[in-house]
Amino acid sequence: MLIAFNKPFNVLCQFTDRSQPPRATLAGFALPPAVYAAGRLDYDSEGLLLLTDDGGLAHRLTDPRHKQPKCYWVQVEGVPTDDQLQALRQGVLLNDGPTLPVQVQRLEAAPPLWPRDPPVRFRKTVPDAWLAITLREGRNRQVRRMTAAVGLPTLRLVRASIGAYALADLQPGQWRALQQ
């Protein structure tokens, strides 16, 4: 079984949380029993999370050797310059080493997304922009760290696809079964 789930903002991509006070988890979304997340999506990120009951499939989806492309829509603070975009395309040096090059393009308009709750703070004097970033590795908070390294702090991060699987029209908290 393979499930596409639109993970809402401020939800853990696990079924339990031992922190105090407890945070929202996947347990609150009536997902089928015996599935678990194939990979991670940070608490403060949104979008496509794949869940499965098949360990081999989870491995194929998440193991870096398989290099599944993951596409993110990223709202950044500032207006990206060609030099900043080129730095991302070449890979940037993070504290845990250089990243692989990524595909990145500036989006002319915000992608068709749902309103975030709570909304991203709007600042009249600070412009923002949307990027589509596709990477093939998956380090901890990698997209956020990469955009910050080139001077474009991330305001909102939404995973749109993993390999052939896309978020499509799923709204936050909704899921659907996928064909493998």
Score class of each variant (00 low, 15 high):
residue 171 Q to Y: 06
residue 103 Q to D: 15
residue 103 Q to L: 13
residue 120 V to S: 00
residue 51 L to M: 08
residue 129 A to H: 11
residue 167 L to Q: 09
residue 151 G to V: 11
residue 173 G to W: 12
residue 95 N to I: 02
residue 123 R to I: 07
residue 162 I to N: 02
residue 149 A to P: 09
residue 156 R to K: 13
residue 110 A to T: 05
residue 172 P to S: 10
residue 142 Q to N: 10
residue 114 W to C: 00
residue 150 V to Q: 01
residue 165 Y to R: 08
residue 137 E to L: 13
residue 113 L to D: 00
residue 149 A to H: 06
residue 60 R to M: 04
residue 122 F to D: 11
residue 71 C to Y: 04
residue 63 D to A: 15
residue 169 D to A: 15
residue 174 Q to K: 08
residue 82 D to I: 02
residue 107 L to N: 02
residue 64 P to C: 06
residue 133 I to H: 01
residue 129 A to S: 15
residue 168 A to C: 13
residue 170 L to I: 13
residue 40 R to P: 05
residue 82 D to W: 08
residue 55 G to S: 15
residue 64 P to H: 11
residue 85 L to K: 01
residue 167 L to A: 12
residue 68 Q to A: 03
residue 164 A to I: 11
residue 137 E to P: 07
residue 112 P to K: 04
residue 170 L to H: 12
residue 107 L to H: 05
residue 138 G to K: 08
residue 107 L to E: 02
residue 131 L to H: 12
residue 134 T to H: 10
residue 158 V to C: 08
residue 86 Q to H: 12
residue 43 Y to A: 09
residue 70 K to Q: 13
residue 78 G to V: 00
residue 71 C to T: 15
residue 167 L to I: 09
residue 122 F to A: 14
residue 117 D to Q: 14
residue 140 N to K: 15
residue 159 R to D: 08
residue 122 F to C: 07
residue 91 G to L: 05
residue 94 L to T: 02
residue 132 A to G: 08
residue 79 V to G: 00
residue 129 A to R: 00
residue 81 T to E: 04
residue 75 Q to R: 10
residue 57 L to Q: 13
residue 97 G to K: 05
residue 90 Q to I: 01
residue 51 L to P: 12
residue 95 N to M: 05
residue 174 Q to T: 11
residue 110 A to G: 00
residue 84 Q to M: 10
residue 176 R to T: 08
residue 131 L to P: 11
residue 49 L to F: 05
residue 162 I to G: 02
residue 145 R to W: 10
residue 117 D to C: 12
residue 105 Q to T: 14
residue 79 V to S: 05
residue 143 V to E: 06
residue 93 L to K: 13
residue 158 V to N: 11
residue 131 L to E: 09
residue 64 P to T: 07
residue 86 Q to D: 14
residue 88 L to Y: 04
